[in-house]
Computed example of a mutant assay.
Amino acid sequence: MTVKIGLIGCGGIAEVHLRGYLQVEDARVTAVCDVVEEVARQRAEMAGGAQVFSTIQSLLAGSDVDAVDICLPHHLHKDAIVAAANAGKHILCEKPLCLTLEEAAAVQKAVSDNGVILMCAHNQLFKPAVQRARQLIEEGALGQVYELRTTDSFYHSFNMETIGWRGHREMIGGGELIDTGYHPSYLLLYLAGSEPVEVSAMLSNHRLHFMDGEDSAQVLVRFADGKVGNIVTSWAYEPTPNTEKFQVVAERGYIYSEAGGDLHYKIRGSEPVTIPLPKTSGFNEEIADFITCVREKRRPIHNEADGINVLKVILGAYQSVAEKRTIIL
């Protein structure tokens, strides 16, 4: 059975997703939707001749897709998810899941009421180093985990003319933290494997002063089992070469990965070990796994419940800065 996909939103990230579907034998993008017809037609041609629609409702009503892939600006996610779920379509949605806890409740209800699968498009979870690290942690190789740090910082060339909707708080939902910063946030929660219970944050606008929101963030998270996590993320600067993608320090040793490639770990009393692993974006693996989830009707690696937990951390960080205190989730 070929899983037929409707691509909703045909901007830059949609091309990355579409290339992923072209690598999966039993999946095909058969419909695309965008308010800019020229862009939609370009994606349709790339997909091999997909139907073109200008609205979500027309795609849902006029195509026979099994699932949709939502690649829209942040503020449009909730309505698109709810519409797709109510139409009985499975859903892959780019991060963030949505922008508020009220929106999250509507998403959760629509997905539950209609019995569809929702997968959060958290591509970095599919990096081999992340999967191997999670395995080592779950196997108890490090003993009790104490602290974790995840990072995603780079010098972004945005300016007033090119930042687009991301420069507006009501569309992006904040600033850099709810965009690129969403990656180290979901990565932190995934590696911690525990419910976040407290959040404290500091936000900065070091360089991109034309933005409504922050261009950099540091967030502390305490988890229910006592672990403490630190998120570092920015569009303002080029990080030092030794900045790790993630690190975990624990009772028996440590584990880390630089740029999400090879995995390094050390157990106390033993020599350090390096596991050579490919450095990938994770997008192709994410798309392939979504298709498998749809075919096998199994729980995705990150579903709406996981997406809501990540959103709680992000919103808690914003509240922490606004109220200058630690937020209890």
Rank of each mutant, 00 (worst) to 15 (best):
R169C: 14
G173Q: 06
G173C: 08
L177I: 11
T180A: 14
G181F: 12
H183D: 09
P184F: 09
P184H: 05
S185F: 01
S185P: 02
L187A: 12
L188M: 14
Y190R: 01
S194K: 02
V197P: 00
E198C: 09
E198G: 01
V199N: 02
S200E: 14
L203G: 04
L203M: 14
L203N: 06
S204W: 03
S204N: 01
H206N: 05
R207P: 11
F210P: 00
A217T: 10
Q218S: 14
Q218K: 07
Q218W: 06
V221F: 11
V221T: 03
V221Q: 10
I231L: 10
I231K: 09
V232P: 02
W235N: 09
F246V: 11
A250K: 05
A250F: 00
E251L: 04
R252E: 09
G253F: 00
Y254N: 01
I255C: 11
Y256M: 00
S257Q: 04
E258I: 13
E258H: 07
D262P: 03
G269H: 06
E271R: 14
E271W: 11
P272Q: 00
P272V: 01
T274W: 02
T274H: 01
P278I: 05
P278D: 01
S281L: 07
F283L: 13
D289Y: 12
C293R: 15
V294P: 00
R295N: 10
K297I: 08
R298S: 13
R299M: 11
P300E: 15
P300A: 15
E304S: 10
